[in-house]
Design a binder for these strands. Structure first.
Lengths: 345, 345
DNA sequence: TTGTATGCGTTATCAC
DNA sequence: GTGATAACGCATACAA
């Protein structure tokens, strides 16, 4: 019966006991197997240099043998750090967030953090609730396009590190696109095509970035002696874009700058359905360069930003104790088929 | 100095102490303020009926006053339940996942759970790593279109409840679309348009659902006396679809069923770039009805599924102890412009 | 109904 | 370098 050594194998015995109590192996189990104190196990696994190579090896072997994984809850209880980062989104189904989520998830994973996400569905109430729910479990929070009042945000920031995306609040860090650069390019592009009268299709009233874009567009248009009007507020969705067409027609402009690609797409769809040719009768542009913008016909001219880079930057900065506000993320005009020469009056 | 009562307010004193130690209020703080034992606080907050209405009210008031929130880590350590659900995705930027994530997040939030997500980037190694990282912190796991070996999945399921999306493994629960129904509709549609020779653009070799779709299509095509060929494997992306065009042309079929919408879109883009008119020379269809499918020109005929419902069902079933495998999720053919009459030979 | 005592698994603070 | 022990915040079996 020489094969039966497994019964004498101390590891097997411990494993059996672990299984019996229906849990996972702990540092006590490892300590027993390795013949050391639990605290030594903790150190061997957690602090590289502070233990002799020999015992470290023993411990590691035992841990491997028992398939040990630290209990993140127990660690968090002791250290106060959960190694989790919360990401609060207004609307998961808006393609802009894909890139943000991916960038954030990667940066988090690289730093050994886990990303937990919550969606507010464009509702301030849901958002407050979601944050409330997330806050105790995370070490830090990314608030993307939040609708919260500045005071609420400041309040949260007193508890945990917070970073804002697409919004600025005094005293809170934020990752922002370089709106200026892309908008200058865009207006030069439109001016070059002969457009003299342009509308900005605004996003929701609560959108900080929409207001920011509008004021930049306003200044740039005035500087170029173009007529500019703001139409809004609108829902930042395809439906919002569709619903805005009548007001766009009424404004008798030759070009429309939508607050985001979704609205631009909706506007184009509605225009197509009533027989307005784009770009021949109306030029349309958006922001973000989401998935779908180059799919639509004609493909959308838009001011793109690297959303994945934005998501990545958000969590990297959150994790960096000596983080300084960096330059805004570059944006660039992507000229496609939805803009063309202004129709002759 | 009557206004100075705050200094005598016991709540203020406790709050100050809490702030000084730099943490959050605990049930001990509440207990002190309410003049009861910590365990009573725990019960009052956790078990509705088991406490007298009077003390329950006292405790609640104190908790409110101190802005108390239970520490999820401490609770998890004691109960073994983290109230978190892990969602592992192959590719966050694939639009199919939007719906899944939204449905899963909502179902989780409704049940008081938090959704934590990880992305494997279509790599089995990353996936194993991500699961490894998530496993200790979650109560249950949703594996969406996983590439893991069946044995690995079974191994995970021994530790925590697992549910699969778009894949079936013996002994593991799964949420599956009713592939059959949609495919029957699709082939009837193509047959009605006169298509006699069709190709299936397969997904990756490791995709269970691709194999499932292929075998169903094969049987349905044979039953209709249509010629059918499988072309693949292909990357389940736009690039994968584009790259497949030469093989599609070589096959001299009049219609292509792509494994998913992304591939169908890629194929159409490539066809457009070499001047093949769709659907006049070639009909193209996909699966999933992702965002973008109706945007592209011509809009894509596809077998759609309610992805949000799928995501929702996944976490609801995960949380339901007496869950029985329900009927597969309904799918339906969505006829748009990318399919048309077969060209006359 | 409420209080007492203990344990969850880990890290941190002491000793030695 | 390593061991013993306390502490993190909460839940629960047991007493009262």
């Amino acid at each position: 019966m020489t094969v039966q050594m497994s019964e004498d194998d101390p590891a097997e015995a411990i494993l059996a006991r672990v299984h019996a109590r229906g849990g996972a192996p702990t540092i006590y189990d490892i300590a027993e197997l390795a013949g050391v104190n639990p605290s030594t196990v903790s150190r061997a696994l957690g602090k590289p240099g502070r233990i002799s190579a020999a015992t470290a090896a023993k411990v590691r072997a035992a841990a491997e043998r028992l398939d040990f994984r630290v209990n993140p809850m127990a660690r968090a209880l002791q250290t106060g750090k959960t190694k989790m980062i919360g990401l609060v989104l207004a609307d998961i189904t808006n393609p802009v967030v894909f890139g943000i989520v991916r960038g954030a998830e990667h940066a988090a994973a690289e730093a050994g953090y886990t990303l937990v996400i919550a969606e507010s569905q464009e509702s301030g109430e849901n958002e407050a609730e979601a944050i409330e729910r997330l806050l105790p479990s995370v070490d830090a929070l990314v608030l993307a396009t939040t609708r919260l009042a500045a005071s609420a945000i400041t309040g949260i920031a007193e508890h945990k590190p917070v970073i804002l995306m697409n919004r600025a609040v005094d005293g809170i860090r934020s990752v922002l696109p370089d709106v200026e650069a892309g908008i200058i390019e865009l207006l030069d592009h439109l001016a070059g095509l002969g457009h003299r009268s342009v509308a900005f299709l605004a996003g929701p009233d609560s959108s900080w970035i929409s207001a920011r874009r509008w004021s930049t567009i306003l200044a740039a248009a005035v500087a170029r002696d173009m007529a500019i009007v703001e139409i809004g507020p609108n829902a930042p969705t395809i439906a919002g874009g569709r619903a805005a067409l009548p007001r766009v027609r009424a404004a008798q402009v030759s070009a429309v700058i939508a607050y985001n690609d979704l609205m631009a797409i909706g506007l184009m769809q509605e225009a197509a359905s009533v027989g307005i040719p784009i770009p021949d009768r109306l030029s349309v542009t958006g922001f973000d360069d989401i998935f779908g913008s180059e799919l639509i016909s004609p493909p959308l001219t838009t001011v793109g930003a690297d959303l994945a880079a934005a998501g990545r930057q958000a969590v990297e900065r959150l994790l960096d104790p000596e983080d300084a506000q960096p330059a805004p993320l570059p944006t660039q005009l992507i000229v496609r088929g939805s803009t063309g020469p202004a129709p002759r009056a």
